[in-house]
């Protein structure tokens, strides 16, 4: 009998880990602080990626310059760049002997922002560029024929590409907030002695819970993460729609 039980336990956590109530052995404010860190890091990183990536996409969409193809292949490579490698490189960069050493960023949220920025920028740029180059040439021609300057024409094309650009930002946000590898390496998954997250995000928290066998807790945090992503998507789509009505 006991052999059977042992076998059942060893067979896997699934048998025992469906508790009646999800185990939440955390200090007050722990979960909200984890959510806050996740949002802070991802939103800041994607904001920076957008400020950098969308203008680059616009420049590439409207101007010809030396090395354009090279930039394009760098961006495309960046889309598939493994996040743990980015984490490692950023860790080297911010470590004491690295070029950013004096800034003292090891295991900080700001270091996480740097690595998320590196990860989110390629998809933001590439998808924005695809949206801009995908706009029918006839639209730009019409703007020009109606007396538009080059700037006017570019503005019209960007406006036509607005949904695609919003998609690009969302894709960047999706990559940033759901990412584990690099934030674990550069952030260190740290929680203060007061039980408040310093560099722990939802993803790294989930990873930790799962490793400790608290699958229910991990699932609950996972649900929070999915809800968050859905909410952000809804907000962006809604903004796009109101913009569409009053354009």
């Amino acid at each position: 009998m006991s052999v059977l039980l042992d076998a059942a336990v060893q067979a896997g956590p699934a048998v025992r880990s469906v508790p009646a109530l999800v185990d939440f052995p955390f200090a007050e404010g722990y979960v909200t602080s984890v959510i806050a860190v996740s949002l802070y890091v991802s939103v800041a990183a994607v904001a920076l990626s957008t400020l950098f990536g969308v203008p680059v996409a616009i420049a590439m969409g409207f101007a010809d310059f030396l090395g354009k193809r090279f930039v394009k292949s760098v961006i495309n490579t960046g889309m598939g760049f493994p996040s743990v490698v980015v984490g490692l490189l950023v860790l080297f960069a911010v470590s004491n002997r690295g070029p950013l050493g004096p800034l003292d960023l090891v295991f900080t949220r700001e270091a996480m922002i740097v690595s998320q920025f590196v990860l989110a920028t390629p998809p933001v740029t590439a998808i924005s560029l695809a949206a801009i180059t995908g706009v029918d040439d006839a639209v730009g021609d019409a703007a020009r024929a109606l007396g538009g300057t080059r700037v006017d024409t570019a503005l019209v094309v960007i406006k036509e590409a607005r949904y695609g650009i919003a998609t690009a930002v969302l894709a960047g946000f999706g990559r940033a907030i759901s990412e584990v590898g690099s934030v674990l390496i550069v952030g260190g998954n740290i929680v203060g002695s007061d039980g408040v997250s310093k560099t722990r995000t939802l993803t790294t928290a989930i990873q930790l819970e799962a490793r400790q066998g608290r699958y229910g807790t991990a699932m609950a945090l996972g649900a929070v993460l999915v809800t968050l992503v859905l909410l952000v998507n809804a907000v962006v789509v809604r903004l796009g729609d109101t913009g569409a009505v009053n354009r």
Partner: peptide, 18 residues
């Protein structure tokens, strides 16, 4: 000078707006 001339194409190519 160009702004005194208007052109209409075979395709309407309207902007995505009202």
């Amino acid at each position: 000078v160009r702004r005194r001339v208007g052109m209409v194409f075979q395709d309407a190519s309207l902007f995505d707006a009202t």
